[in-house]
Every structure is written in C-alpha cells, then in structure tokens.
C-alpha cells in the first residue's frame, strides 16, 4: 500500500528537494505539490493524501491555519509540519491545530521518512530539537501547576470562592470560619502565587480551571 503524500511549501526548490528524497521510497508517492495554503486545501480535497508535509511559514494562509482546516475536514489526514522555526509558539500552535509531527527542515533528509512512518502509525513525531523545546515547555507548565498544588485544599476552596466574586464576609459564612481567618488566608494565597490583586487571582483561577468560564475569548 502506497502512502500518498502532498507537499506544501512556498519554496519550490525545497519541494523539489523533498520530492527527490521521498521518491526513493517505494511505498511513498508524492501525489501533489502546493506553494500556498488555498491550493493546498483544494488539493487535499481532490487528492485525499494520507500525509501532508506542511511548511509552517507561508504567505497568505500559513501552515497552522491550513492544518486546522484540513484536520477539520479530514481528521484522518496526517499532517507533518516542516519548518525552519524552532520556537515553542510555532511548535505548540502547530500541534494544537492538529499536526502529528514537527520536523526542522535541516533534519528533513535524515528524518522525514521516519517521521512520515511514525505519524502514519498514529504516533506523534518531533525531531530532537523540537522535542527538547516541548520538554522545556512541559517542565515550565509543571512548575506553574505545582504552584497551584502548593495551595492547601482550604486555600484552593477560598481561591475558588474569591474568584467567583464572593466577599470575605460571604466566604466566612460559607466556610464557617471567621472573617479574620479568611482575610489572612486570602493574603497568604496572593503571596504564595506571587499575585498583586484579586483580579490577577481571578485570572489565575480561570487559567487553572478552578472555575468554569462559559465564554473564554482569545486573541
């Protein structure tokens, strides 16, 4: 069974380089090439490739957006990101939009086949440098999470109530503690989390999913 591959990159020489590289593989077939996002989408609809090798940075609709649309229409299509950018923003956005792997272009010759096979197998692929980046990111988010867990159960409860807009008095009433206790606790929470205001605490609570927000808009 031949793997049908669509190449999307706005640099033709790179597309040619990849084509020559992948054509050596008997079970892989380049079914089409696209220099920009819109063409890529049309080709996906007509050719129905198994794997789309996607450049992240493109004029017009970029790789992130194209990936998101592809995955919306054809969730079974695997997208392997191929980029010059080694920045967590791009990497994580790419993964978030549905890409299965992220490969730096300079590593393409060595790793692209392996990467295609990995994503086809339903696994994620990241080249070594990208993997390092992801690990850093994870560690950082873990640190932040640990800050949350550093809060005691009672503190977490108070944080939740504060974020819901309850006053100190109301919280005292709900938890059955004195107002002074709640006040002291509130100050301790802010100090622990390194926050300055109640507004920041609310933001923290939303981010840490301590409270549910129906409409969370993003930029």
């Amino acid at each position: 069974m031949t793997t049908r591959i669509l190449l999307v990159d706005d640099h033709q020489i790179l597309r040619e380089g990849l084509r020559s590289l992948l054509e050596t593989q008997p079970d892989m077939k380049i079914v089409g090439e696209a220099g920009e996002g819109t063409t890529a989408l049309q080709l996906v609809r007509t050719l129905r490739p198994d794997v789309v090798i996607m450049d992240v940075n493109m004029e017009g609709m970029d790789g992130i957006e194209v990936t998101r649309r592809i995955k919306r229409e054809y969730p079974e299509t695997r997208v392997l990101a191929l980029s010059m950018y080694l920045r967590s923003g791009f990497v994580s956005e790419m993964f978030k939009s549905g890409a299965s792997g992220y490969l730096l272009k300079e590593n393409a010759f060595v790793e692209v086949v392996q990467a295609i096979r990995t994503v086809l197998a339903g696994q994620k692929y990241a080249c070594a440098k990208v993997a390092g980046l992801l690990v850093d990111q994870y560690v950082q988010s873990e640190e932040r999470a640990s800050a949350r867990t550093a809060l005691t159960e009672r503190e977490t409860e108070v944080t939740r109530l504060l974020a819901r807009g309850k006053s100190t008095k109301e919280i005292a009433l709900i938890t059955g503690s004195s107002i002074k206790t709640i006040d002291a606790r509130r100050r301790r929470i802010l100090k622990k989390l390194g926050l300055n205001s109640l507004a920041e605490l609310v933001v923290y609570a939303i981010r840490e999913h301590l409270i549910e927000v129906d409409d969370q808009r993003t930029t």
């Binding site: 706005d10 640099h11 020489i13 790179l14 380089g17 990849l18 020559s20 590289l21 940075n57 010059m84 272009k105 300079e106 393409a108 010759f109 060595v110």
Partner: peptide, 18 residues
C-alpha cells in the same frame, strides 16, 4: 534570510546528505 538564505542552506544540506 528565511526565505532565501535558510531555504538554500537547507537544500544544500539536503543535497549534501544525498
């Protein structure tokens, strides 16, 4: 740099590896 230098370098590397 990205569009030309980088792409060319990557391609060069690719060719070299080939």
């Amino acid at each position: 740099l990205h569009d030309h230098a980088c792409q060319t370098l990557v391609l060069s590397k690719m060719k070299l590896q080939q």
